[in-house]
């Protein structure tokens, strides 16, 4: 599979949040603004890519029975690195907003899932791009959700006010809005999938009918 295909698969077909429904806790908690979502997305992307690379390198040395704890140690090390980098260099308001969700990257199902399903069975380069794809997919979902939540809830994008005459719906940056916004986006994704399936179904049925007509015409009298 080419690099581009691997990336596309991680971002669209197997999008961790919108299709596979994993990694929901940070998705809802850190999308109060696009800035926070980008920060969380980048942190997760880094941990996912690096742990995928290291696990694919060393997976043959991990005894089969205790491979999960081994993966967790690798992931936790990278999370600690990210935490220390963020404490030192990230803007304080982003660091405070992400709070305990930075150390909680370690229990994000996406990372352990990719380690177990992909990195432990594939080469370094393939795992690198798999991690990049899934990480970018996660970031995309976060940014899309944060875009709608910030637009509706604060009337701004990147803290730049978009509409000032309308009163923003504050609920959308609070907890209930997170659930409703993600539910609506998931509904939209499901609607598009259903429509595509219906179209494919109709196409297949049409083709089948055409074949039937041709075969019945070619039937010897």
């Amino acid at each position: 599979m080419s690099v581009f295909q691997t990336l596309k698969k991680g971002v669209f077909e197997n999008n961790p949040v919108l299709v596979l429904l994993i990694g929901l806790c940070p998705t809802l908690a850190t999308t109060t603004s696009v800035k926070n979502a980008l920060g969380m997305g980048l942190a997760t992307l880094f941990v996912l890519t690096m742990s995928n690379v290291v696990i694919s390198m060393f997976s043959r040395f991990f005894p089969k029975k205790i491979r999960i704890p081994c993966f967790i140690v690798v992931i936790a090390s990278f999370v600690t690195i990210v935490k220390m980098i963020m404490d030192a260099y990230a803007p304080p308001e982003i660091n405070d907003a992400l709070g305990i969700f930075i150390p909680l990257i370690v229990v994000n199902c996406i990372i352990l899932g990719r380690a177990e399903a992909f990195a432990s069975k594939n080469g370094v380069l393939a795992s690198l791009f798999d991690g990049l794809g899934s990480g970018l997919g996660f970031m995309l979902a976060l940014v899309v959700l944060a875009f709608f939540r910030e637009l509706l809830g604060a009337g701004a994008i990147f803290d730049i006010p978009i509409h000032t005459s309308l009163k923003p719906i504050t609920m959308f940056i609070l907890a209930p809005g997170a659930f409703v916004a993600l539910g609506s986006i998931l509904g939209f994704v499901a609607w598009r999938r259903l429509r595509r399936e219906e179209r494919e179904c109709a196409e297949a049925a049409g083709k089948y009918r055409a074949e039937l007509i041709i075969t019945s015409k070619n039937k010897p009298e």
Binding site: P176, A178, F179, G183, F188
Partner: peptide
């Protein structure tokens, strides 16, 4: 429930209403 919202999406919206109540 409308077809695209069956299953998980409607559960999210229900959870949102529950969160509103818990506020």
């Amino acid at each position: 429930v409308p077809k695209p919202f069956r299953g998980i999406p409607i559960s999210f919206i229900v959870a949102g209403i529950m969160a509103l109540a818990f506020m």
